[in-house]
Design a protein around this nucleic acid. Structure first.
Length: 435
RNA sequence: GUGGAUGUAGCUUAGUUGGUUAAAGCGCCGGUUUGUGGCACCGGAGACCGUGGGUUCGAGUCCCAUCUUCCACCCCA
């Protein structure tokens, strides 16, 4: 396979046999979010580089080494979005959503781009579903956002997944905490791994979720953010927990949960799975109360989450979570000869207009080959159209699972097909009830 | 960016200490009375053995480089 006809490293093709799975996920996500009042927003895949560099955070790895950045022909620095929150907030300010009735609830689906080394659950182009709730400061908003993610995962049928929450406080209380943390780790600096030594100066909170055994052991006894929260932040976190409790959502408070993007404040959370390898976070999000103002809008508290669609699919496959089967062809029309072929086109289009999937011969094949093809594409019914049928204006519709044939006039194929399809659907329902 | 594994028809693989036209199963196409699929039998197409160098009379097999894919670090969804 030559270089040129191979997909770019870290990108994935979704093939026809799999696309219905993605469609099911996306439909479930959008519909569930809508039940909570979140409506879809669509924003460009690229933005001015500053939209991300200033707001996601200059010191984050995402901005420092993972962005696809280039100059356009006008000399502007453009970046393919590495995540969607910054673009959505930009759009919400630009179009005045945040000056309209609050809260504004939006959701989105789209591709994100990060120059990373691919591995299980990590791609260079990946797709995210997410929601943002703009203009709501109360803990009930945190609980609602988490509930959306929870219901989506639930409806998809994910069972083994845990919700972990934490509060990383506001910039005020975080100052004290970071100082205490630095103090603690500096005393043990020679025990830390090399990357954590570096983190100590750059972003000490990240040492908390280091996976090296020594560091994570040290992290266990490190000062906890929760103990350093200011009164307001503490009260907020208690409120979030109370709302989650009353909604019956199970969670564990995990002081190790620290999100990697700079804009997070107060509540942060992740849905984590043990079934998909090292990249175990399927959904992650939190509050970002300062971001809207930082981007030039009125001070507007906000929060949201992102959910990795490929990771979710990986989880579904690894845990054998059943998804709805893809629909198959309702009727295959097998014409014999040129005249019949023309008639087949006419009939097929008419029935398609009524909402059935109909296919017919496009290769000029013989009857036997056509029947084989109909079988391979899992057609529910077939209809042979030859000289006999054209002469008498009647034909037989064959049920491919039972082999039984039903006569019909050529003018009423759609009616006959409708009753046959309904009948077989009914039988499937009663079958599953009996089982 | 750092490590480890990998790379032979569309897919899954075989290929003996380097030795002629690289093999099989599945899939695909066709045939077994141009009027009915699944089963069986028969036949066919399809591979510059990831790519580029090197060693050799001779390389799918050995060496080097490079790329892909997979997994882990890092990072995150």
């Amino acid at each position: 396979m030559s270089e040129i006809n191979r997909a770019i490293k870290g990108t994935n093709d979704v093939l026809p046999k799999d696309s219905h799975k993605i469609q099911f996920l996306e439909k479930t996500m959008l519909e569930t979010a809508r039940l909570f009042g979140f409506r879809e927003i669509r924003v460009p895949v690229f933005e001015h580089t500053e939209v991300f560099s200033r707001n996601v955070g200059d010191t984050t790895d995402v901005v420092q080494k993972e962005m696809y950045t280039f100059l356009d022909k006008g000399g502007r620095s453009i970046t393919l979005r590495p995540e969607l929150t910054a673009g959505v907030v930009r759009s919400s300010i630009e179009h005045g959503l945040i000056y309209d009735a609050l809260p504004q609830k939006v959701c989105y689906i789209g591709g994100c781009y990060r120059y990373e080394k691919p591995q299980a659950g990590r791609l260079r182009e990946f797709h995210q579903f997410g929601i943002e709730c703009l203009g709501a400061a109360s803990p009930s908003a945190d609980a609602e956002v988490i509930s959306v993610a929870h219901q989506i995962l639930n409806k998809i049928g994910i069972e083994k997944i845990s919700l972990q929450i934490n509060s990383i406080g506001c910039p005020e209380c975080r100052k004290d905490y970071q100082a205490a943390l630095k103090d603690y780790f500096e005393k043990n600096i020679d025990k830390l791994c090399d990357t954590c030594k570096d983190r100590l100066t750059r972003n000490p909170m990240r040492i908390l979720d280091c996976k090296s055994p020594v560091c994570s052991k040290l992290a266990e006894n490190a000062p906890k953010v929760i103990d350093y929260l200011c009164d307001d932040c503490k009260k907020h976190f208690e409120g979030v927990k109370a709302h989650l409790d009353s909604a019956g959502l199970k969670y564990t408070v995990n002081p190790q949960i620290v999100r990697g993007l700079d804009y997070y404040t107060r509540t942060v959370f992740e849905f984590i799975s043990g079934d998909i390898g090292a990249q175990s976070t399927v959904c992650g999000g939190g509050r970002y109360d300062a971001l809207v103002e930082q981007m030039g809008g009125n001070p507007t508290p906000a929060l949201g989450f992102g959910m990795g669609i490929e990771r979710l699919l990986l989880l579904i496959e690894n845990s054998n979570t059943p998804l709805p089967k893809d629909k198959t062809c309702d009727l295959y029309i097998a014409p014999m000869g040129e005249k019949a072929s023309i008639k087949a086109t006419e009939i097929a289009n008419k029935i398609r207009f009524d909402g059935f999937e109909v296919q017919t011969d496009l290769c000029g094949r013989g009857l036997k080959a056509q029947m084989k093809y109909a079988d391979k594409i899992n057609a529910k019914f077939t209809l042979v159209l030859g000289d006999n049928e054209l002469d008498t204006n009647t034909a037989e519709i064959k049920d491919m699972t039972t082999g039984t044939k039903t006569g019909t006039s050529l003018d009423k194929i759609n009616d006959t097909l409708l009753s046959l399809v309904l009948n077989s659907a009914l039988e499937n329902v009663t079958d599953s009830i009996i089982e």
